[in-house]
Design a protein around this nucleic acid. Sequence first.
DNA 1: CCTCTATGGCGAA
DNA 2: TCGCCCTAGAGGC
Length: 301
Amino acid sequence: MSGPLSGPAEMPEGHTLHRLAQSINEHFAGQVVEVSSPQGRFVESANLVDGTGLVDAQAWGKHLFIGFEAHRWIHVHLGLYGTFDVHTGPPAPSVGQVRLRLVSPSRKGPDGAALTVSSTSYADLRGATTCDMITDSQRAAVIARLGPDPLRADSDPDRVWARISRSRAPIGALLMDQTVLAGVGNVYRAELLFRHRLHPLRPGSTLRRGQVGAMWQDLVELMRAGVSTGRVDTVREEHTPEAMGREPRRDDHGGEVYVYRRLGQPCHVCGSKVRTEVLAGRNLFWCPKCQPKFRSRAAAQ
DNA sequence: CCTCTATGGCGAA
DNA sequence: TCGCCCTAGAGGC
């Protein structure tokens, strides 16, 4: 594998999609692109935009929109294990279930004439849960359902506060709700709650405005770092493997984390064993000491 | 070989 | 709350 998306498997949370949008723009924006579906399942959609200009790719939360001329969009959602790898050089034969392939520059011009090019890029989409051709209004409808995205400069964190402050649902569930806030997945959820010392089951309505504001700002910084590095790193400087003299995390998740997938292992801060529980079908991870159970004023009396 | 699992989200009960 | 869809790697026999 080559190109900016190579390396350890990326976790498809919001940062992955924003990074992917950047990469697609670097390689394909402003160019006539070949679009094909080697797997065969999306041939008709691919044919609609094959040989037309790719205008730009945009990410909103975990959704990716690749814009082409004539107001056509490819809507991609990677789901649990989709990948969209961008490579430089002549396209390798497609292996496995390549659902969609972009090749640029096109070997044929708009008039069908062959183009002479010095370099090519190609991108293979595999395992995605969504890959649809949509219109401007369909794209707008998808975006309208999404909450503010920490990676978009025009996002309004007050909308997040409004949703969290009037909900009795656990903060751990609200953070994963893409209509509350777009782009957070299981890793950022677990890590954000740890960094803010919040028990995952604490009701959203018991949080103070300042806490929610601090979490938003933290997410903006953590996820921006994730876009530039392509991995999720959430431990503070004093808790890095180097600072603590422990072995770096060595699995396919890439980044240094406090609690995500560390069930039974000692907390980097207090040494307590990390706990887990399933909430709405997803694994929660937290430190019972650093993230103590919330006791309301009524319950404490 | 087989089974299990995961970073997500949808629709049916 | 459950089952289902998509893929790939790990571990068991």
